[in-house]
Design a protein around this nucleic acid. Structure first.
Length: 846
DNA sequence: TGTACATAAG
């Protein structure tokens, strides 16, 4: 008999609703007098296939074979498809291999494509997929589709299985296959190389693609290339690349920019990163959640978590959802600043949002609480992980081990490590812990343990081992390891050299130390730390002349001495040298002195900086530059050394320098802050006689002085006096005045000052450039000092009234203000603010 | 269609 389609539909309906599947098993069909032909069975199976009842097909087919009903190739094909659709890849493979004929003629068969892609993507087993690809080509005469090759290369690359991916490429190149090579493949492989930490190979691969395969790279390939460049710290080369891309007519997108920005951030180039972000926005490219997360992560790591919350607001405002990664980055930022309570608040917020947690989040908190020595909470977190079913990996264990070591509990960490399978980080951390503790026995023990565990050394481990060897007095072993590094393909870095030099000096083997230093000089590594290590030891050993030589060489070598001096105590070494008993510092000129002075100022050694100025003048008759003087005066004022600052101003006059407004401002500011407005006004009249006009800053600090002492009348008077002379306060000056009026309840006047402010060119410029994020630091500075002075809710309220002409920029400012005020209440506030913002009910914000 | 974001050790 033949199934009519009506019959079929009825039959099928009963299948779906029937309580017992046995009604339609072949057994029952036979019992009920059905003797379906193979053709009708196939038709039925095909019907099931097209109505997506794959489970029924599988069941039916197994019943068929149970009843010895043989299918034909069509039956098999349908069965195989059903298994594939059910993601039963193993079964599908077996089925296909037993039922499909082998052949040597090349033809296409989508079922193989589906199987291969199934394993490589859904089954997450691209290795198996690769084997199948080979089988299909070699044994079954099936040529999988181009897209199958590509998707296999992609999943192999994304798992870092580059060798395999390249094998697939080879196959694509095979005469019988001869598929083209394109950007899809190229970008995947480049990113694969980066994933396994071989960006240099990624770049080589890229150039090969261009030269050998004549590939014309597109945006995605270039984006992958940028990752490789940034991984190598070569972010500076990206601009040039971008020029080339633009010449080729390519238009950048958010992913490209994100990559670039991420590279800048990793190199510590915060300003550049923010500038790129601004450029991107200006080009009309919308930020997405990932690009914001990259910025947030970068800011967090630079120690500016507070600013990240501004970006969070911005994300929410632009309807982007911060994800777990975003919040993790913020938590990390708080933890790094020791603000674990804030980090924990964010953690709770994430939980409340119903976001599923992962090991990362816990790892960050574990690290944070370890650093606080709060191991009770750490253990609670670990318990929580267990109950949530998140298994700690070696990374979390290492975090904990590191935490214990840093807390001086290395032996506890050691115990913990014995219960897990340690990796290279585990052992280097433990070793480092024992080195810190000077524990020779345990150092030797740990070295042995890591050897037994078959840990192969990397550079970090070597550096720690070197230190450990020196510590236990195994100098020759240290030397042997140092020499052996090259054989292991490990290149000594600055830490290696410092460790060797330091170690040799400690045991008084000065010749060897100098020899190592010589090797360092011949190496391509430039490290100020090594110089400083040597210099400070030479000083300690009373080899001052040699130290001076080294110091002069350092100055000569460093293109930017000031960068050189500010790191690793170099500036203090310079100070000691200059102030030392010998006066053989002829090599230094006025620029060098200024750099040392600036370095000392930057590190907060103001009095030492003064010393250097003095000695330079006395010994060499060298005078600091005007900039050096000004900076020093400014910093002395900031630190409250008003007398020294004034003396220095006098000295400037004696030395024939004209005193600039900037220098006067430093003094005025200092007087105002310490409540000596009378003195400040004297400076003002001084300025007047010298025909120096007060600037925005001058006006602002004087207003601040009056406000602080509650003298609103005089503040207002001074304000209008300056206004009439054509000088307005700056942004902060206005805000301080407004705030002062608000706290006195003089809202009407506050509002009129606000209206004045919104007419001020410089304020408008500042506000409109808030989106230009390199400016936010400036605004942040204002806001931070504002908030230092107490509640500013009133100012914020008035601000919000003025929404119309500033728009989004204002929004950013306001949220920033809020953040500065209270950054622990992120969740609660942001929701409130958002609601008011969207309803346009800005006036009602409480 | 591929490309971008988070935890540990010197």
């Amino acid at each position: 008999m033949r199934f009519s389609s009506l019959h079929m539909a009825k039959f099928s309906r009963s299948l779906c609703s029937s309580s017992s599947q046995n009604h339609w098993s072949p057994q029952n069909l036979f019992k009920q007098g059905f003797t379906p032909t193979l053709q009708s069975i196939n038709q039925f199976l095909y019907f099931l296939l097209s109505s997506h009842r794959f489970d029924l097909i599988a069941h039916f087919v197994s019943q068929m074979s149970g009843n010895r009903v043989q299918g034909n190739s069509q039956t098999h094909s349908i069965s195989a498809w059903a298994l594939l659709k059910l993601n039963m890849f193993e079964e599908a493979e077996r089925f296909i291999k037993t039922h499909m004929p082998k052949s040597s003629t090349f033809s296409k068969d989508p079922i193989w494509d589906c199987l291969i892609v199934g394993f490589s993507i859904h089954g997450k087993d691209p290795d198996r997929a690769f084997t199948l690809l080979q089988d299909s080509l070699m044994d079954y005469g099936v040529l999988p589709a181009y897209s199958t090759f590509r998707s296999l290369i992609h999943s192999l690359s994304s798992q870092g299985k580059i060798t395999r991916a390249l094998e697939v490429l080879e196959l694509m190149n095979d005469d019988r296959v001869n598929y083209p090579y394109d950007n899809f493949v190229c970008s995947s492989v480049i990113s694969g190389f980066c994933k396994i930490g071989k960006p240099e190979l990624a770049i080589e691969f890229f150039h090969n693609s261009l030269n050998v395969k004549a590939l014309k790279p597109n945006l995605v390939t270039y984006t992958a290339l940028v990752t490789a460049l940034c991984d190598l710290g070569r972010v500076n080369e990206v601009s040039e690349l971008v020029c080339r891309m633009r010449e080729e007519g390519l238009v950048l997108d958010v992913v490209f920019y994100s990559n670039w920005i991420s590279g800048c951030l990793r190199e510590g180039m915060l300003k550049d990163a923010l500038q790129k972000h601004y450029d991107m926005v200006k080009e009309g490219i919308m930020s997405d959640a990932v690009s914001y997360t990259i910025l947030i992560d970068g800011l967090s790591k630079q120690g500016s978590v507070e600013k990240t919350v501004g970006f969070l607001h911005k994300m929410v405002y632009t309807k982007l959802k911060p994800g777990l990664v975003t919040y993790s980055a913020i938590m990390l930022g708080f933890c790094r600043k020791g603000k674990v309570v804030e980090a924990f608040t964010v953690f709770e917020l994430v939980k409340n949002l119903g976001i599923e947690l992962d090991e990362f989040v816990y790892g960050i908190l574990v690290d944070g609480f370890c650093r606080q020595g709060n191991f009770k909470l750490v253990s609670e977190l670990l318990d929580e992980m267990e109950t949530t079913g998140i298994r700690p990996s070696i990374i979390t264990y290492n975090t904990l081990i590191n935490g214990l070591c840093n807390a001086g509990r290395t032996s506890d960490a050691d115990e913990l490590s014995k219960g897990i399978l340690g990796d290279i980080v585990t052992y280097s951390t433990l070793l480092q812990g024992y080195v810190e503790e000077d524990n020779v026995v345990r150092i030797l023990d740990t070295i042995q343990r890591s050897k037994d565990a078959g840990i192969s050394l990397d550079m970090m481990m070597c550096n720690i081992l070197l230190k450990a060897h020196f510590m236990v007095g195994a100098i020759d072993e240290a030397y042997a390891l140092y020499k052996g590094m090259q054989r292991m393909g490990l290149v000594a870095d600055s830490v290696t050299y410092c460790t060797m030099i330091d170690g040799y000096f400690k045991v008084d083997r000065i010749d060897e130390a100098l020899e190592t230093f010589d090797e360092f000089r011949k190496s391509p590594i430039s490290s100020v730390a090594c110089y400083n290590c040597l210099i400070s030891w030479l000083c300690k050993k009373n080899l001052v002349e040699m130290a001076m030589d080294a110091f002069l060489e350092l100055i000569e070598k460093s293109s930017t001495l000031d960068a050189a001096l500010t790191k690793n105590g170099g500036v203090l070494a310079a100070y000691e040298l200059i102030m030392g008993p010998n006066d053989n510092v002829q090599g230094m000129d006025v620029v060098d002195y200024s750099l040392v002075v600036d370095g000392l100022i930057k590190e907060g050694h103001h009095i030492k900086a003064l010393d250097i100025c003095d000695i330079a003048e006395k010994r060499m008759n060298l005078r600091p530059s005007e900039v050096t003087y000004s900076t020093l005066i400014d910093n002395l004022c900031r630190e409250g050394y008003l007398v020294d600052a004034k003396q220095l101003v006098d000295k400037m006059v004696v030395n024939g320098y004209r005193i600039s407004t900037h220098v006067y401002n430093s003094l005025v500011n200092c007087y105002c802050k310490t409540g000596q407005i009378g003195e400040a006004l004297k400076i003002l009249s001084n300025m007047d006689t010298e025909r120096l006009k007060p600037d925005e800053f001058t006006v602002s600090v004087v207003i601040n002085g009056y406000c602080q002492s509650g003298n609103m009348e005089q503040a207002l008077g001074f304000f209008s006096e300056c206004q009439s002379k054509g000088t307005s306060p700056d942004f902060l000056g206005y805000l301080l005045l407004i705030r002062g009026l608000c706290t006195k309840g003089r809202m009407e006047e506050a509002r009129s000052i606000l209206r004045e402010m919104l007419k001020s060119q410089s304020v408008l410029q500042l506000l409109s450039s808030v989106d230009n994020l390199s400016q936010t630091e400036l605004v942040d500075g204002f806001l931070a000092s504002l908030c230092d002075q107490g509640s500013i809710k009133e100012a914020v309220m008035i601000f919000l009234e003025a929404k119309s002409n500033i728009g989004d920029s204002l929004w950013t400012v306001c949220t920033d203000i809020e953040i500065h005020e209270d950054n622990t209440n992120i969740g609660k506030h942001s929701v409130q603010w958002k609601v008011h913002r969207t309803k346009g009910e800005l006036k009602n914000v409480q």
